[in-house]
Design a protein around this nucleic acid. Structure first.
Length: 110
DNA sequence: CGTCTGACGCACG
DNA sequence: GCGTGCGCCAGAC
């Protein structure tokens, strides 16, 4: 873990997100030790699009549950469709009852 | 080395 | 509830 780049750690956590669950940039940042580095998480995810191994970036949203990176996901509805296919309710580019689907690594990976 | 830029988050008004 | 501003850290120029 420590030998890996900040980005790779982000990828690992994101891959650990269970099917039908979502997490937030802030939660990941907090888990990595930099609670106020949420921007780095989003940036890392953007870079993740070029990674060989698939990273379920669609399961990562901001604190409000909004699909902020949908335009970077290769399409406008792709991200939403993926979430919907996992049983997650998405209304107006925002996750409905996201607290119910929220998967906080800080809570789960104690 | 100085500056800008982010898929964010939070404090303020 | 919404718009604005600032902090945060790492990478690109």
């Amino acid at each position: 873990m420590d030998n890996k780049d900040f980005f790779e750690r982000v990828y690992e956590v994101v891959r650990l997100v269970p099917y039908g669950r979502v997490t937030t940039y802030g939660a990941i940042a907090r888990f990595l030790g930099s609670a106020r580095s949420a921007r780095m998480v989003g940036w890392a995810l953007n870079k993740s699009l070029c990674q060989k191994e698939y990273v379920p970036a669609h399961r990562v949203v901001n604190r409000n549950g909004i699909l902020t990176g949908k335009y970077y996901f290769g399409g406008s509805k792709v991200m939403e469709e993926l979430l919907l296919s996992e049983g997650i309710r998405v209304v107006d580019d925002q996750i409905k009852d996201m607290e119910k689907y929220l998967w906080d690594p800080y809570e789960e990976l104690v």
